[in-house]
């Protein structure tokens, strides 16, 4: 009797709920995934509610209180938990607003690159032949170009602003999306449900977006996490070199660059933004690895 599903579910529905439950259990049991997800959500929360969470205005300078050390030092200033920077700006507030820049640029960039990469990958995988040859060549060209140099060159020509940095990173990081989408599309394109969609005369966009894309979403999401981390690090590197986000905006990479002259006397000033970058990147990578494990196990 226990085999008969309750509440009038059909057998297929019952199987589906079982699978969902198993998936949920796998997710909860994966420590890396839980850690990664928690940290990413936390940083996203901080980024969204930065104005409410930051104790001070991140741009307000206080030249009489420069380079105040953080709370674990004896000479720490009680008003500034994580100290102040070389212009006397509250470091905690700047770090909190920095999460906004990192997450904003990261998500903005992977939206662009995901769109480009998935489109190219879907077309190459679905049509094959000449279309595939052309798109594969485009992918090879992109892979052969040194990302950071191209990004810097474009920013040097177009001028550095938040929008340009997002656009440049987005236009450069689509290669993995394209590679993965192409391979996954190749695998599903001759399956029965695609054939039947073709047979009943579904439009091309319907087949690509409604039929193929939902079925290859797992690897695409994994790539998205990897590229999110990549985009955040790239933004930090560009800003660190002075050709990314411009002062006085509090980007973690830019903060590292501004602080490096003071690191000999106040080492904490380069430690804090670096730790933020490290933990966020680590969390995103763990989330990606975890998602890969869980979705691969589900198959």
């Amino acid at each position: 009797m226990s085999d008969i599903p309750l509440s009038g579910q059909t057998e297929a529905e019952h199987l589906r709920t079982l699978r969902k439950k198993a998936r949920r259990r796998a997710v909860l049991a994966h420590r890396g995934l839980i850690f990664g997800l928690t940290v990413v959500l936390l940083v996203a929360f901080v980024a969204v509610f930065a104005p409410l969470l930051a104790p001070y205005d991140p741009f307000a300078q206080n030249l009489s209180l420069r380079l105040a050390p953080p709370f674990w030092h004896d000479t720490a200033s009680p008003e500034h938990l994580l100290g102040t920077d070389q212009l006397g700006r509250d470091y905690l507030s700047r770090l909190i607003y920095g999460a906004r820049i990192s997450m904003g640029i990261g998500f903005g960039a992977i939206l662009i690159s995901g769109l480009i990469g998935c489109t190219l990958g879907l077309l190459a995988g679905y049509f094959g032949g000449k279309v595939d040859a052309v798109i594969s060549t485009i992918i090879t060209v992109r892979l052969s170009m040194p990302i950071i140099l191209i990004a810097l060159a474009v920013v040097a020509v177009a001028g550095a602003s938040l929008k340009i940095v997002i656009a440049v990173i987005g236009l450069l990081l689509w290669d993995q999306f394209a590679v993965v989408t192409r391979t996954a599309t190749l695998q599903v394109r001759s399956l029965e449900y695609i054939r039947s969609a073709q047979a009943i005369g579904c439009s091309l966009s319907h087949i690509l977006i409604r039929e193929i894309l939902p079925n290859i979403r797992a690897p695409v999401i994994v790539v998205a996490t990897v590229e999110l981390a990549h985009a955040i690090l790239l933004e930090a590197a560009l800003s660190f070199l002075g050709l990314g986000v411009q002062a006085p905006l509090p980007s973690w990479g830019l903060m590292l660059s501004e602080a490096k002259t003071f690191m000999f006397f106040s080492p904490w000033i380069i430690t804090l933004p670096g730790v933020c970058l490290f933990i966020l990147t680590l969390a995103i990578n763990l989330l990606g690895d975890g998602l890969r494990d869980v979705t691969a196990r589900g198959k």
Binding site: M263, I270, F278, L282
Partner: peptide, 18 residues
């Protein structure tokens, strides 16, 4: 490996200098 992948190399450079 996981940590190595997450450390921005310019930050690693600064820490090594320190």
């Amino acid at each position: 490996a996981v940590c190595g992948q997450a450390i921005p190399n310019f930050w690693a450079g600064l820490l090594l200098i320190l």
